[in-house]
Design a protein around this nucleic acid. Structure first.
Lengths: 333, 333
DNA sequence: CGCGTTTACGTCGTTCGTAACGATA
DNA sequence: TATCGTTACGAACGACGTAAACGCG
């Protein structure tokens, strides 16, 4: 058994059992991987994959267990390398973040810009996807951190650090009757309109859905999109009323759209930075977290990692707007 | 970085930084280890050990972290091999148990005998020591399980499965006044005598010490020994009254010694089987546990391992004497 | 002078890439 | 026929063991 063999194994698994694809990803030749896989199977004495003809078909049950162990072995090997890189103040490296489109597009930009100013040699890889995908990538060791949002409790896996809180806003065309409503918006107002929101609002456990359920209302979600830009586009086209995260608002949106606060209608959400419990963080990762969530102290983070528990309690988590103000303050200073 | 390099690293650490000794233990030559260590240090870019002249002096701070990671890597590699060995019904293997002398000498014998009858090719290694040593060995991956006793809560680390409960007994020479006491033994009776007990009874948190403390008494512990046989020897020599675990009583001891129950004087103790949370158990390990603690079901064990929690609650844990009866019943059947 | 580590060197095994072959859709 | 995996072969690298040199107590 070799680290190389295990690396090839997970590469094959991550490439969807396509050995050729896996080979390019690890910068090796395809026969090399084939052979190493065969040797590993010979040594262990059982098939890691079921074959259909010559192609790999599925992972064996036992193979899945081996794969899991191989992943943690490789993660720990990477940790050792991180220890070394931190010690020598190595400035190069990768920062792989799995997150949603909203975070990547509207929230992370400043912190990433700051990071690549301080560490120009660090390349940032953003892996957009659903919340669950992000957590799965984190657990599989494919990314260094996941940045996800929940309403209420932190995500179940890993070390979750609260980054900030935010509310939803309702977005209507300037010309729409709702945009000039003389009173506060109500859930009934919204239930009467075709709505446009994120894909995730389809799920029954979404805080959007729960708010309507609690009021005994059945909203008509006309269009869902994974992407705030798409939502805005459809709102502009007059196809419905948008409900989205307040971070997704841009100054120029106020030209033809009207954003109505919805704090009183939907549960407040929290965005979390989720880290692998066992991972050794590179210096620039800590730097990034501090830039992104300035209320988190370096020591808080390392302490939470050591204790293996998230630090939801006992940390004052700023709201999105306060956070924006704080950022401005920093920029002005 | 190679698995071999990491194996050599932990071998060197476990050999007390003596490369020559480490080399014999891993069945390799000393220059080989030296060279691999050097290569690893070169690759990581820092010293894993501080040198004094040519000899290794201490482990670097960062080296300690690397060592820790290396240990889990090797443990996971061993897990992969265990998966393979289980799958091919491999009958050979090692069972390394860290435990106290009392367990090894008086309690484990039957289960080990049964195991080596069923799996003659499995070699059992008993590692005697204190409770804390046993848990440290378990945590370092040097042993497969620890078998330790506590009064009350399970040991903090690993998966703890309750094996059985037991009480202390007081041991006096047949001729001693205490042996013919017409009434029940009291703590005052004991406090008036020179006592002979285990080394661990010196510790303030021992249940022995706590019982006397609670009664406001200061016992005179005249002799301590790590070993029940020694305690008996000194009791026979008339040097004091013995206090030891009821398991340590043998039928032939009743010839010249008198055992007095002490259930009402000292807190009941529990003996735990402690496993590493992440370890894959070989078939024969499950077999051993079932033999040793028949009230534990194979499924209970795997479930507890998967859940990562001990199963202290919800399991009826037999008392030592009931357990003995049950064993007899099995033997008779 | 013994113990332990490092350095030097030769041999062996292994890995890796190129190329040809085979199977499958 | 195109795609993907296996087998074959040769070159280069790396690991390992033996032998000798070096430092230290």
């Amino acid at each position: 058994m070799t680290l190389t063999q295990l690396r090839f194994l997970v590469a094959i698994a991550d490439a969807g059992l396509n050995i050729t694809l896996a080979a390019e990803r690890v910068h090796a030749t395809q026969p090399g991987l084939s052979k190493q896989l065969k040797q590993l199977e010979d040594e262990l004495g059982f098939q890691l994959f079921t074959r259909k003809g010559k192609s790999l078909e599925t992972i064996t049950h036992a193979g899945g267990h081996v794969l899991e162990r191989a992943r943690t072995i490789l993660a720990e090997a990477a940790n050792i390398r991180s220890i070394a890189a931190n010690l020598r103040n190595e400035a190069r490296g990768d920062l792989r973040i799995a997150t949603t489109h909203t975070q990547a597009r509207f929230v992370l930009t400043d912190a990433i810009a700051a990071l690549s100013r301080i560490y120009p040699q660090v390349s940032v890889h953003l892996q957009p996807g659903r919340e669950n995908d992000a957590l799965a990538l984190l657990d599989g060791g494919q990314v260094d951190m996941a940045i996800v949002s929940t309403s209420g409790t932190p995500p179940p896996a890993g070390i979750a650090l609260p980054a900030y809180r935010w509310n939803r806003v309702v977005l209507a065309p300037d010309t729409h009757p709702l945009a000039k409503l003389p009173r506060e918006l109500s859930l009934d107002d919204l239930a009467a309109q075709p709505l446009i929101s994120y894909d995730s609002s389809q799920k029954p456990e979404s805080s959007l859905r729960r708010a309507f359920d609690a009021a005994g209302l059945l909203p008509q979600i006309a269009i869902t999109a994974g992407d705030a830009d798409l939502i805005k586009t459809y709102v502009r086209a007059g196809l419905g009323i948008g409900i989205l995260a307040e971070m997704a608002l841009l100054p120029r949106d106020t030209g033809d759209l009207r954003a109505l606060p919805a704090d009183h209608l939907f549960a407040r959400c929290t965005t979390w930075i989720v880290l692998r419990r066992e991972s050794v963080l590179r210096e620039y990762v800590l730097e990034f977290i501090e830039r992104f969530a300035p209320h988190l102290d370096r020591r808080d983070i390392t302490r939470a990692m050591a204790a293996g528990t998230h630090i939801a309690e006992g940390v004052a988590v700023p709201h999105w707007r306060e956070r924006q103000l704080a950022d401005d303050g920093v920029a002005a200073a």
